[in-house]
Amino acid sequence: MSRRYDCVDKAGRAEGVAAAKTAVGNGDLVVIPTDTVYGIGCDAFVHAAVNDLLEAKGRGRDMPVPVLVGTVKAANALVESLGMYGQDLMDAFWPGPLTLILRANRSLSWDLGDTKGTVAVRMPLHQIALDLLKETGPMAVSSANRSGMPPATTVEQAEEQLGDSVSVYLDGGPCDENVPSTIVDLTTAVPRVLRKGAIPIEKIRPVVGYLATED
């Protein structure tokens, strides 16, 4: 049976984050608000939990799960290198709606899907998400919706789509922005925008210089 916690007030938030921490530690799925849309997440290092996440969404391994972190230090531990631009982009836009594709640390024991040795990592600008991430460490988090359906911007929408596959729902109210994060691939010689999103390309170019796009 799923549990929903009203995290708008301080007391409810503390109770909800504690319950979500326990659920993540048990290998269960949780739904959390972020600065973009609601996300469904689990411990990034529990293979069975990541498989459950993909199954709950109806999504294949060919679409690997991104990772959310609560600190820049945690992101550094997940990757081989930040390259020429990773640190500058984190300094400019984290926490916030910028996802960076980087080479994953090869010593880590995880399975996020068919990543081809990379990881998509982001530090969200949402206090509830950050509170939980600082308790759990890195979490595999994807948008809280069934594959092919619109991303959930309220906890009710997430619960309607995902139901009892999720152990804990954290209700932070409606998401302020229904815009996904911008995704920049830093694994190639020239940084490349893979998805246009909440951070305009015009704001990223001054940080990295030339920026390739899919257009």
Rank of each mutant, 00 (worst) to 15 (best):
D114P: 11
P95A: 10
K134P: 05
G86E: 02
G60P: 08
A104I: 14
V67H: 04
D43H: 15
S109E: 15
E135S: 11
R195H: 08
M90C: 13
N26E: 13
D6Q: 12
C42E: 08
R122S: 01
Q161F: 07
R4A: 04
A92I: 07
F45Y: 15
G209E: 13
R195G: 05
A19M: 03
D185L: 09
R122M: 03
T71Y: 09
M139H: 04
D35N: 01
M84G: 07
A11E: 11
R61D: 01
V50H: 04
N145T: 06
P138L: 08
R205W: 00
P206F: 00
D6Y: 06
V141I: 15
L133T: 01
L100Y: 14
V24S: 05
Y210L: 10
E55Q: 12
L125F: 15
Y210C: 10
V37A: 11
L100S: 13
R3C: 12
G96T: 10
G39W: 03
G86H: 03
R13V: 04
R61Y: 10
A140P: 11
D52V: 03
N76F: 09
V155N: 01
C175E: 02
S143Y: 06
L54S: 01
L54Q: 12
D9Q: 07
P97K: 08
G197I: 14
P150V: 15
Y38M: 07
G58S: 09
A92E: 12
W110C: 00
L78N: 12
A11I: 14
A140V: 11
V168D: 03
S142E: 01
N178P: 05
G58T: 09
R192G: 02
A152F: 03
G113R: 06
A19W: 05
I128H: 03
A44V: 14
D111H: 14
A23P: 02
K57N: 07
G83W: 04
K203M: 14
D164G: 03
E80Q: 15
E15G: 10
A158H: 05
V184M: 01
L132V: 08
E15T: 10
V119Q: 06
